Computed example of a mutant assay.
Amino acid sequence: MPQFEFATVPSQIIWLAITFVALYFIMSWFALPKVGGVIEQRTNRIAGDLDEADRLRRDAERSTEVYQTSLAEARAKAHTIHQEKRDATTAELETIRKAVEAELEEKLSAAETRISEMRNKALAEIKDVAVDTAGDIIERLSGITVDRPVVAAAVESAGRAGKA
């Protein structure tokens, strides 16, 4: 193998050094600046993306704060509207309740008056029925016809005696 021949080692080392220096200069003048430019572009792009992401994050936080504030205001307004409607409805229902109670009270009073009149009328009719019945009973039992005013006086005195 030629690389293991000691006679050619010094020339191989010289050519290695020449090739290394040539490659070093070619790489440092041509390839490395391009690679460095690409790396710098990527670094700048990443930094720009990070700045943009930070700006968007701050905007999102501001938007969230505005949203939360608007939501709190809307809730407060809704609560106020709800309370106003509730109070108005309660007042309206109270007015209706009072009107219905007054109407029912009026109907109850009228009904009590009618009941009282009917009771008085029934009591008057009962007296007439009692007088007629007492006259019929006396006539059937004794065979005597009694005048109606006499029977009415007797029923009246019996009614007073029963109350006492």
Rank of each mutant, 00 (worst) to 15 (best):
A124E: 13
E156H: 06
E40Y: 11
Q3F: 15
R140H: 04
V66G: 02
I126E: 15
W29C: 06
V9R: 09
S63T: 10
L56T: 00
A130F: 08
D147R: 05
A154S: 10
E156D: 06
A99Y: 03
R148E: 05
E101Y: 03
R140D: 11
E139M: 06
A111W: 00
E117P: 01
G143D: 03
I39P: 03
A22I: 08
T95L: 09
Q12C: 06
A99C: 01
R97V: 07
I39D: 06
A99E: 13
A161L: 09
A17L: 14
N44R: 15
E101M: 00
I138H: 00
K121T: 09
L32Q: 11
R42V: 05
K107W: 00
R57K: 08
A134W: 01
G48W: 00
M27C: 08
L141Q: 10
H82Y: 13
D59C: 04
S11Y: 05
I137K: 08
A91V: 06
I138M: 02
A99P: 02
E117I: 04
T95I: 11
E92Q: 13
V150A: 13
T19K: 06
A78N: 03
A74N: 06
F6V: 15
G159Y: 14
I81G: 01
T89S: 15
I144N: 12
I46W: 01
F6N: 08
A78Y: 02
M1P: 09
T95G: 03
T8Q: 14
W29A: 14
V35Y: 05
E106D: 12
R45C: 07
G37W: 04
R160M: 11
I39S: 04
D54I: 08
D59M: 11
G135L: 14
A17F: 07
I26P: 01
I13A: 06
V9Y: 11
A134D: 03
I13Q: 07
R57Y: 07
F30W: 13
D132M: 08
A22R: 01
E112W: 00
A78R: 06
